[in-house]
Amino acid sequence: MKRILQVLFIIIFIASVNPFVSAQCKGFAKKICKLELIPFIHDGNYHAAILTEGEEAELYKTFYSGQDYRIAVCGSDALGAIEFQVIDGYKNVLFDNREHNNVRLWDFKLESSQQLKINIKVPVSTGESEYPASGCVAIMFGFKEK
């Protein structure tokens, strides 16, 4: 009985300190991805989740005329370079990072305000691992003060 209680104590301890259990992707977004936005100002919004290779995500946002924006799309080391595309309401692909060495950033400004969609895909690795890799993916936006 004493041994079972000891085991339970260890489990509770691990749960309380394990970053995956308590923090998930917040630390990744804040300490790693946010740095990619410098010298832009992060807008403060939080868009991050644990994704598995092969998984996709979409984000919808209105971008306003006259503002300078930076999009940063980052994935944790366990994942390959995250693919992302920026698409307008007419389904035109405005930017595809696969055509730019899989960069994590895109800087742009708009002549008129537009609602855009950002498509994200975690690539499937070519490694021989039996299980698909999972990790944090964050999408962050920065702007410049006018």
Binding site: D43, G44, N45, H47, A49, L51, E55, E56, A57, E58, L59, Y60, K61, T62, Y64, I139, F141
Partner: peptide
């Protein structure tokens, strides 16, 4: 797919 919606902060 996971869907995110982003409002101006």
């Amino acid at each position: 797919k996971k869907i995110f919606y982003s409002l101006p902060s």
